[in-house]
């Protein structure tokens, strides 16, 4: 009885193995012989471009908003700017990325009479979106820098903005680098929704391979592996960067 069960298990396993390797063969066939890899490469490129440029735009916008938020608010202009920033952050944190993509692509662009590729739309929306998140991160980073640094900069006659750019923000960035890394990883993963506006990312590439081979198990598995590999590489990169930036903390 046990022998039978054992045989059945082995049989099942081999079945599973057989079917898996068959699927793998199909996948590799489409991937390599039928040019699927070009789509994967394009998808990979778009995913990285959208995430990287999105992060760059996000850091710029986030730094700007965070700076506005920490300016002393005696005067009218900083108060107005602060109000705008609060609304901006509230909007982009209060709606899903997909909704923002759709709004931008199907509402904003037609209203402005513009035409843009899905990738460009995604870059802009990812930048605007991550700018809202990064602004909060950057604000806490700026507030974590000792107030004496700003005072010392002002005391030698540098302006608020110069001290901010040369002294405070570099130290703030160092403090928030791990969090910025998380934001980058989140952006990489969120690129999987850009097909909503017709941008060809990794999901589109592997979905296409799946459709062509009538088989989705291996393509989606491969897609997951690629995402994991990217994220692991980014994590390593951030760790190296952190080590480099820690130089000014080291006592030797």
């Amino acid at each position: 009885m046990y022998t039978n069960l054992f045989l059945a298990v082995i049989k099942n396993e081999s079945l599973l193995q057989n079917s898996f390797f068959r699927k793998l063969d199909k996948f590799l066939d489409v991937l390599i012989n039928k040019g699927g890899y070009t789509r994967v490469l394009v998808g990979l490129k778009n995913t990285l471009i959208i995430a990287i440029l999105g992060l760059v735009i996000g850091v710029l916008i986030g730094t700007l908003i965070a700076t506005v938020r920490v300016i002393p608010k005696y005067k009218v202009l900083p108060r107005v700017l602060n109000g705008i920033c609060t609304f901006y952050v509230g909007f982009f944190r209060g709606t899903p990325m997909v909704v923002q993509l759709l709004l931008f692509y199907y509402v904003m662009l037609p209203l402005m009479g513009l035409n843009m590729s899905g990738v460009n739309v995604s870059i802009i929306v990812f930048g605007l979106n991550s700018g809202a998140y990064i602004s909060e991160v950057m604000r806490s980073g700026i507030q974590s820098v000792d107030g004496g640094q700003m005072e010392a900069g002002r005391a030698v006659g540098l302006s608020f903005s110069t001290t901010m750019m040369k002294i405070v923000i570099p130290q703030a960035v160092k403090n928030i680098l791990p969090t910025l890394g998380n934001e980058f990883i989140a952006l990489i993963k969120e690129t999987s929704v850009v097909s909503f506006v017709g941008a060809a990312d990794l999901y589109v590439a592997f979905n296409m391979i799946g459709t062509n081979s009538y088989e989705f198990m291996v393509p989606y598995l491969a897609m997951a592996i690629i995402y994991i590999v990217i994220v692991v590489l980014i994590t390593l990169g951030i760790r190296l960067m952190e080590r480099g930036l820690k130089r000014s903390d080291r006592r030797n």
Partner: peptide, 9 residues
């Protein structure tokens, strides 16, 4: 300043 406030970076 009392706390020196050298630019750490």
């Amino acid at each position: 300043f009392q706390q020196f406030n050298l630019f750490n970076n």
